[in-house]
Design a protein around this nucleic acid. Structure first.
Lengths: 332, 332
DNA sequence: GTGCGACATCGGCAATCGTCGTCATGGCCC
DNA sequence: GGGCCATGACGACGATTGCCGATGTCGCAC
């Protein structure tokens, strides 16, 4: 590879001068600068970022640690983050933890070793423990989590409100006996969605018996299984709130294979509004998370913090929104 | 941050010794080594990868450049690659080009500057030009592309065969007038799928008039629009081959909104077998790409090449396979 | 039994990777 | 001669590694 020294020799100047014309960091005689630029072009020189990072103490790299980038929700978030980062000159390192605390820890170690400038973290339940170990060492933005610490910001979604929207909507349609397919108990999002949902039912004078709730894993197959179980436990339900779209889709197929129609027999509400919510039949009514905003806000917060490391910790909460499609029908 | 010098001082040895105990690169008196390890633990020292990379001339990083990680097909591939890379100690930098040659070029420049050890590239049509500029500078694996060059391997999918499978299947079901929704003309995959499809029809004594082909963009909305156009141009078709699943899904919704049923009125075959092919109604019959294999094979090829840079260029072609679900019916 | 050289073992010094910023220098003008 | 300007020399940044030196071990000869 050609180095700055080669360029300097070729242009007949010192390496310092080459560095300065590249970085516009001090005045260089226009004529000299031109000669340097010509040398750079002639030798197809491109500065070695590794050396530069070592010297400058910054890598222009952000770590993105999430459970699974092939989950469409995280895929969208990742896409937004990558885009937003790139326009600001940052590159992103992708890490999939499967929500596994040990993996998270391993990834964090290598990210720290690689001297990332910042971290965007969609963590597992144990993240606090995981995180505490390395905490104030790198600016971070948590997605959908909070932690009290300097230099950690959060981008939150108001899951409680999202659940509330779902509950109010179904109650408003006249449903009285409603089932729920929950996500992992140890996630932070699922219980909040559930609480909001229950709150809305309460306002409508409805109860949610324990037998009407089946917990699952946020996956398609899990949703299908949960729906089977739900039908067994609570055969009289007329509507289901699934705590994410993937499970809602699974639930719909479970219903279909039992010969039940959505929304004629059972109404279904999902959560997330993944891109594929419109590709199912019927198109899924769901609580939309503001995906693009999550990604772009996360990057903004992170970059702002990089600019001002001592700024007070910030939390930004984004509101979900009900997207009415065709998977729900009025009842009664 | 604590450095190797801090550890050395703390343990009362030289930096060389610290380095050697960390890397097991020469014998160190067990007692000394223990003291060093204790110092590392006490100071929570973690070596600076940037400095290490500069010195060693390798970054343990691979670049992954693809059109869009939120496309579920690429999402899966990315996931596989990230997983496979991580177990071998590699970290992946994610780059989304949108298939835009200029973006690709920009990304390649920064990846090269960052001294990635290898590149996995799912490129645009122009990639040859884009690539030629930087070519032999880094080992690369092309996904679904070929290029004659040393140190570039390829993982290919036999699209032609995939198209052939689709054509043979539909012809075998008795369909005579079949429509096609093509992908971008300038992709390599779509034309190959089409050729294989036509070949199969030919073997069955069928023709594919130009009016029965509508090109689109591999997206859901594009598929919907293309289907509209196809219904207008070729109203008598009884089956459609969409060159990817997203478009097939879009086509299905277009049909549905016209009151046509799949597969009763129109049969539909997709391509890719994205995870959501089973979440639609009806579950989509499609030509499955061996996604996991693509990712893992790409990483294997790359790592093998890193081990043996001068090895002859390899190409690995993977066979797609027909996954029969419920979007096709017999005719005649 | 003693003395000495060959050799293995273990640790430290210092060069190196490529870039950037500080300090120094030489030339020029007033 | 003082001040300014353009540029060059050089030492970090943090880790790795070739080389050398110090110490210890062993065997052999006298």
């Amino acid at each position: 590879m050609t180095t700055i020294a080669d360029v300097a020799r070729y242009a007949g100047v010192s390496v310092a001068t080459v560095s300065h014309v590249m970085n516009h960091t001090r005045h260089v005689e226009p004529e000299t600068a031109e000669r340097v630029r010509a040398a750079i072009a002639a030798l197809r020189y491109s500065p070695n970022s590794v050396a530069r990072s070592l010297r400058r103490g910054e890598t222009k790299t952000i770590g993105l640690l999430l459970p699974d980038n092939s989950n469409p929700f995280f895929a969208s978030v990742a896409r937004q983050i990558e885009d937003a980062g790139f326009v600001s000159g940052y590159t992103v390192i992708l890490c999939n933890s499967d929500g596994n605390a040990e993996k998270e820890e391993r990834y964090l170690s290598v990210l720290m070793a690689k001297q990332i400038d910042g971290l965007i973290f969609a963590g597992s339940s144990d993240h606090a423990r995981v995180f505490a170990r390395l905490l104030p060492s790198v600016p971070a933005v948590l997605l959908d989590r909070e932690i009290q610490s300097v230099n950690v910001d959060s981008v939150l979604v108001d899951h409680n409100h999202g659940g509330y929207l779902a509950g109010r909507y179904l109650a408003g349609l006249g449903h009285k006996t409603i089932g729920v397919i929950g996500g992992p108990r140890d996630s932070s999002s699922s219980p909040a969605r559930l609480r909001g949902f229950v709150r809305a039912l309460g306002e409508a004078g409805l109860e949610l018996p324990a037998s009407s709730i089946v917990d699952s894993d946020y996956h398609f197959a899990g949703g299908r299984l949960a729906m089977e179980q739900l039908m067994a436990q609570a055969p009289d339900i007329t509507a289901v709130f699934a705590c994410n779209d993937l499970m809602a889709m699974g639930a719909v197929t479970a219903l279909r294979s039992r010969g039940l129609r959505v929304p004629d027999d059972i109404s279904m509400v999902g959560f997330d509004d993944i891109p594929y919510a419109v590709t199912t039949w019927p198109p899924l009514t769901t609580i939309a998370q503001p995906v693009e905003k999550i990604g772009t806000r996360a990057v903004s917060l992170l970059l702002e913090r990089l600019g001002e490391p001592e700024a007070p910790s910030r939390r930004e909460v984004l509101a979900p929104v009900l997207v009415e499609r065709e998977s729900c029908a009025a009842r009664g």
